[in-house]
Simulated scan of single mutants.
Amino acid sequence: MTTLPRQVPPAAGATPGPELVQLLTPEGERVDHPDHAVDLGAEQLRGLYRDMVLTRRFDGEAIALQRQGELGLWPSLLGQEAAQVGSARALRDDDYAFPSYREHGVAWCRGVDPLNLLGMFRGVNHGGWDPTSNNFHLYTLVIGAHVPHATGYAMGLAKDGADAAAVAYFGDGATSQGDVAEAFNFAAVFDAPVVFFCQNNQWAISEPNEKQTRVPIYRRAAGFGFPGVRVDGNDVLAVLAVTQTALERARSGNGPTLIEAYTYRMGAHTTSDDASRYRLDAEREEWEAKDPIARLKTYLSAEGFADDAFYAEVETASDALARRVREGVRSMPDPQPMAIFDNAHADGHALVDEERAQFAAYQASFAGSQEGAA
Rank of each mutant, 00 (worst) to 15 (best):
A350D: 14
G156M: 01
L300P: 00
L321K: 01
R102N: 08
A275H: 12
Q44Y: 11
M52Q: 04
R219S: 14
W74C: 02
D281G: 05
L237A: 00
A192H: 08
N209T: 15
D130Q: 13
P337H: 06
G223E: 03
G128N: 09
R249P: 09
Y311M: 09
A360S: 11
F186M: 13
N125Y: 07
H149T: 05
T270L: 10
V352W: 13
R251V: 10
Q84I: 12
T245H: 05
P99K: 01
A165Y: 02
F197Y: 15
R6N: 13
P9S: 02
V229F: 07
N209H: 14
Q336P: 03
E283S: 06
L45W: 07
H126E: 14
G86D: 02
S331R: 15
R284M: 08
V21H: 01
R92C: 08
E285P: 07
Q370M: 00
W287T: 03
A339H: 14
A168E: 00
E260A: 02
A374F: 00
A174V: 01
E43F: 11
P10I: 01
V142F: 11
V352C: 05
Q202W: 15
F366V: 02
V194R: 00
I63K: 04
G79S: 04
A174M: 05
A261F: 07
D319M: 08
H349C: 11
G28D: 05
A150S: 11
E207P: 00
R6C: 09
R295F: 07
V106N: 04
N200C: 11
F305Y: 15
R326Y: 12
F359A: 04
P99E: 06
R67A: 14
C198S: 12
D94P: 01
S252D: 15
A289H: 10
S318M: 06
Q202P: 12
A322Q: 10
F224M: 03
R330F: 13
D319R: 14
T175Y: 00
A361M: 09
E315F: 02
C198A: 10
Q7L: 15
L117N: 06
R50L: 11
Y278P: 02
Y49H: 14
L321V: 04
R279L: 05
Q336I: 11
Y96E: 01
D353H: 03
E103N: 09
H104K: 11
P148H: 02
E313C: 01
M120E: 10
P34L: 13
W74N: 02
F366K: 05
A107G: 13
P208H: 09
I217M: 08
S133E: 14
F186I: 13
G368N: 13
N134M: 07
F170Y: 12
T263F: 08
N116E: 15
M155D: 01
V53H: 01
A12R: 14
T140R: 03
T243C: 06
P114K: 04
H33E: 12
F305S: 10
V112P: 04
E27I: 12
M338S: 13
H345Y: 15
S76K: 08
L258T: 09
T55S: 12
R284A: 09
W203M: 04
A11G: 14
N135Q: 12
A222Y: 10
Q44C: 10
P333R: 14
T213V: 12
M332L: 15
A154Y: 03
S176I: 00
G17S: 13
G28H: 06
